[in-house]
Design a protein around this nucleic acid. Structure first.
Length: 276
DNA sequence: CGGCAAACCTGCGAGC
DNA sequence: TGCTCGCAGGTTTGCC
């Protein structure tokens, strides 16, 4: 499911519903997601006030009043659903139920169980194994053309693969990598080390713009992603190339055809004519 | 170290 | 209708 815009949308929904409230009960409806829940997971969050909710890369970080931080990842199919009051019936993939003093119920649903939740603390967060190697936030102030070019220097892999590598830049996934490369007129097969100068500037601008527009649209819904309210995202209606194989290139002056190819096991969609 | 395929798990749509 | 196949928004591991 989720790349940076979807995770950002989910995070904002959780913040809206949970900030300042206190967990009254947490129920694990199975012993594991991608990993087993650690000993004392539910107890570490119960009866504590939620003081911060933010995102780093595709990770959701929930901070409690005592400095405990829950790191959550949605994997491919994870979603949170927030409702007021008790829930009468659970879906078979509702794996974790959070209830608060104010009567909010948050369900974590994840059919494929590639997501996970683990505990750390505010002091340990920056050196946590899941986060320590992650690259710069693409919407942050430090991410610019020279920064990206420096990270791509000496790399032989195609630029599409480098964008999916979270060490290069945080939070870009398969959809937004395809869309950003199209916007920047850069071929997904181009060698990473050749992304320099104005080309790097253009790619950074494309990444930022596509992510910002997607956040403004509540993310993209392909199959089961939704916002925490249950409302769907709608940026999928604005994809220019993703899953558009066979379509005419949407570039106004281009007569090319959107083409699918497979790179390191993932589908890439692009226009071979105007992406070079 | 770099690059790639496979593995993790379930569901869905296409094709027969 | 029902089966099989291929594919899916992510990340890690292990193999060349």
């Amino acid at each position: 499911m989720p790349e940076l815009p979807e995770v950002e949308t989910v995070c904002r929904g959780l913040e809206q519903a949970l900030l300042g409230d206190t967990f009254s009960k947490i129920t694990l409806r199975r012993a594991n997601l991608r990993f087993p829940f650690e000993e004392g997971f539910a107890e570490a969050l119960t009866a504590k006030k939620i003081t911060r909710l933010h995102r780093r890369a595709k990770y959701i970080l929930m901070t409690l009043e005592d400095g405990t931080v829950m790191i959550g990842h949605l994997g491919m199919s994870g979603s949170f659903r927030i409702t007021q009051g008790p829930v009468a019936e659970f879906d078979k993939h509702d794996h974790v139920i959070f209830e608060t003093k104010k009567g909010v119920t948050v369900r974590y649903n994840d059919p494929r169980r590639f997501g996970f939740m683990m505990l750390t603390s505010t002091e340990a967060i920056e050196t946590h194994p899941q986060l320590i190697h992650i690259g710069p936030e693409p919407l942050g102030n430090t991410f610019n053309g020279p920064e990206l070019a420096a990270r791509l220097k000496n790399r032989q892999a195609p630029i599409k693969a480098a964008l999916l590598d979270q060490k290069t830049v945080a939070g870009v996934g398969n959809i937004y990598a395809c869309e950003a490369l199209f916007r920047a007129h850069i071929s997904p097969t181009r060698k990473s080390s050749t992304i320099t100068g104005k080309r790097a500037d253009a790619l950074v601008a494309a990444i930022r713009s596509v992510l910002e527009e997607a956040i403004a649209s509540g993310g993209s819904t392909l199959r089961n992603y939704s916002q925490t309210s249950g409302e769907l995202g709608y940026f999928q209606h604005r994809f220019l190339v993703y899953d558009k194989a066979g379509n005419d290139c949407p570039g106004s002056k281009c007569s090319g055809t959107v083409t699918r190819l497979v790179q390191s096991g993932r589908s890439t969609f692009y226009c071979p004519k105007c992406q070079r």
